[in-house]
């Protein structure tokens, strides 16, 4: 299952809820959730720990818009909107953690 997260990890428990509840699959960080994928963010350790269970992706245009395109945590894959579409079509189902 593809899990789509759009909230900053420091402002919302959404990422935690997803990491705690979801059984695995892919996580795509979009909008304010892209901060979770940046080096030095307090959520970095949490995200790294989750990489065993999930494949983590970040939406590059959202990261670039926020001035953090050069700071992606190692192991996180960058995708554009086309890559977002591929993730949706390649997963059996998807869920936006709103």
């Amino acid at each position: 299952m593809l899990h789509i997260i759009n909230q900053s990890p420091l402002n919302s428990s959404t990422l935690d809820s997803c990491l705690n509840t979801a059984t695995g699959g892919e996580i795509l960080l979009i909008e304010d959730a892209v901060y979770a994928a940046t080096r030095g963010n307090a959520a970095e350790a949490k995200l790294r720990a989750a990489m065993g269970k999930f494949k983590v992706y970040v939406l590059t245009p959202d990261l670039d818009a926020r001035g953090l395109g050069d700071r992606v945590v190692e192991g996180v894959s960058s995708v554009d909107y086309g890559g977002f579409v591929d993730l949706v079509s390649n997963s059996k189902n998807c869920q936006s953690w709103l």
């Binding site: 299952m1 509840t21 979801a22 059984t23 699959g25 189902n93 998807c94 869920q95 936006s96 709103l98």
Partner: peptide
């Protein structure tokens, strides 16, 4: 959740 076809959250 994994077993669902459509997951809607608001």
């Amino acid at each position: 959740m994994d077993e669902q076809d459509v997951v809607l959250s608001f």
